[in-house]
Amino acid sequence: MGADSIPRCSIPSNDMPPFRGPDAVDISLTVNGQGATAHLRPQRSLLELLRGPLGLTGTKLVCNAGNCGACTVLVDDRPVYSCITLAVACEGKRVETIEGLSKDGELHPVQEAFIDHDAYQCGFCTPGQVMSIVALLRTKGKPTEDDMRRAVTGNLCRCGAYVNIVKAGMSAARRATK
């Protein structure tokens, strides 16, 4: 990973909320632009919160160990592996998932580009890949192809759709800057 690459599991430690638990606690956060509350035990991951109580199953569970990137979501615009991010660490933060990308039935440019470039096969890694690229495009309007590859180095694709994923990302970047 290059020095300028986007940090993963990027909740800075000085940003952590005070110790909570051990019993279930109330948390509130913003998910896809709407307020959300949950009552859960503090060891629950953000992924468990999203897929469980919030019913947002678009974010996928694969390794549950921060190895594959399938569960990538944005927390305050930064990509994180939600399987190794505690839900309580997202108190008061802004979480975005694949379900929140399209607005009023309009697909996000990255989503459009994935369809145009056949940037998926089975589609299981797709939500994570898309979120990683969305995060890159928010920080870098005109990424290089190398930036694009580095943005998805942490997102494994077993079908091997990488060539088209990078193409789709670059195409979305061009579209966004037009």
């Binding site: 947002l56 994935f114 369809i115 797709t126």
Partner: peptide
Amino acid sequence: KRIDGVQRVTGR
């Protein structure tokens, strides 16, 4: 393009 592309890219 895949006819089920929208489902795949939206998490649906």
